[in-house]
Design a protein around this nucleic acid. Structure first.
Length: 329
DNA sequence: AACGAGTCCAACCGCAGGAGA
DNA sequence: GTCTCCTGCGGTTGGACTCGT
């Protein structure tokens, strides 16, 4: 694995250490000459990962700048924190964003905007970085292709009345496949939706030692370290094998939807048995999405011509939808 | 097989807010 | 109250990878 070493001077402002009991390997105060040091940048090496994991296993996380020095890592504290939170943490969940997660992201983004960390709090195991990347690469791409500002009302309405109902419909269909595979395999759009499954998977998928925590992790991570301080209070059961194989694109489904209000949910969770997504005060229940007759025709076209639909899943319909919105305005 | 375009994601950067001296 | 430093957040970018020609 290659990395780019680079000598940089830590500026006199942020990033400079001292004054809070910082220590070096000998528990001594950091001296001035240590401020200017050779810092690594770029991709992390396996050795660095091990060092960071082991140090956190013994000393816990936090105080990232001093942690970096005490661990002997030639990285900034920010870099260590980012590496840990986004990649090395035991409960980081990797792999495709599921349909359920997509729906949740769309809904939460419509509510909070680019508050990625806040949105990430409601998707167990997902990092703000991952959600941000998903939004930029998928959602904003669609907006760009639609020649539509991602912050415009038209685009938000398209998300709300077209993509989110599509996702909800597909989630329902997925649940049907899971619960009754033989019946579901005979017809319906969801039987062919694996066509655009992303092939961009960097890490091997290995079995996580904890129940319901199967995700992509670096293969060199020692199992015992992955168990550090894990109480596994998070519910990961939403990812069924079939839904993980589905495309990450916002496709299919032609239904209107409604959001049921509920006041008894403090934390996000996904209840697989009911396919109900709870976050904060609201509940999205795909089973409550009402059929929208105006889009029935697209559904029929989809079923008659699956291949064409999946190859170009949103262009025609979304453009029509945007035109319709413009006409209504 | 080679090349270019597009996609995806890990990592970096700057900024803001908070905490301690 | 002010200064310094740490942490966390959102935006951006570089490069690895895939795919089409």
């Amino acid at each position: 694995m290659e990395y780019h070493g680079q000598k940089i001077e830590v500026d006199s402002g942020r990033g400079r250490e001292g004054g809070r009991g910082d220590c070096n390997e000998n528990n001594q105060e950091i001296k001035e000459e240590d401020v200017v040091m050779e810092l690594r940048r770029g991709p992390w090496t396996v050795e660095e990962d091990f060092t960071l994991i082991n140090f956190i296993a013994h000393h816990g996380e936090g105080r990232w700048n001093s942690l970096s020095r005490c661990a002997g890592l030639k990285r900034t504290g920010k870099s260590c924190r980012l590496r840990w939170l986004n990649y090395l943490r035991p409960d980081v969940r990797r792999g495709n964003i599921t349909l359920e997660e997509q729906l949740l992201i769309l809904e939460l983004h419509s509510r909070w905007g680019n508050r990625w960390s806040k949105i990430a709090q409601h998707l167990p195991g997902r990092t703000d970085n991952e959600i941000k990347n998903y939004w930029r690469t998928r959602v904003q791409k669609h907006a760009k292709q639609l020649k539509c500002d991602v912050n415009s009302k038209q685009f938000k309405d398209t998300m709300k009345y077209l993509w989110m109902p599509r996702l909800a419909e597909r989630i329902q269909a997925t649940a049907a496949v899971t619960s009754n595979p033989t019946a579901a395999s005979s017809s319906g759009p969801t039987t062919t939706t694996t066509a655009t499954t992303t092939t961009y998977i960097q890490n091997q998928e290995i079995q996580h030692p904890l129940p319901n925590m199967n995700h992509h992790v670096p293969e060199y991570l020692p199992i015992q370290l992955m168990n550090i301080e894990k109480t596994n209070s998070l519910n990961y059961s939403a990812t069924s094998a079939s839904s993980d194989n589905y495309s990450s694109d916002l496709t299919d489904g032609c239904y209107n939807f409604s959001i049921n209000q509920s006041n008894n949910q403090d934390h996000s969770q996904v209840n697989q048995s009911t396919n109900q997504f709870c976050y904060g005060e609201s509940t999205i229940n795909p089973t409550s999405y009402n059929f929208h007759p105006g889009f029935q025709g697209f559904q029929e076209v989809d079923q008659q011509n699956n291949t064409q639909w999946m190859e170009n899943p949103w262009n025609i319909e979304d453009v029509c939808f945007l035109q319709q919105l413009n006409n209504d305005m």
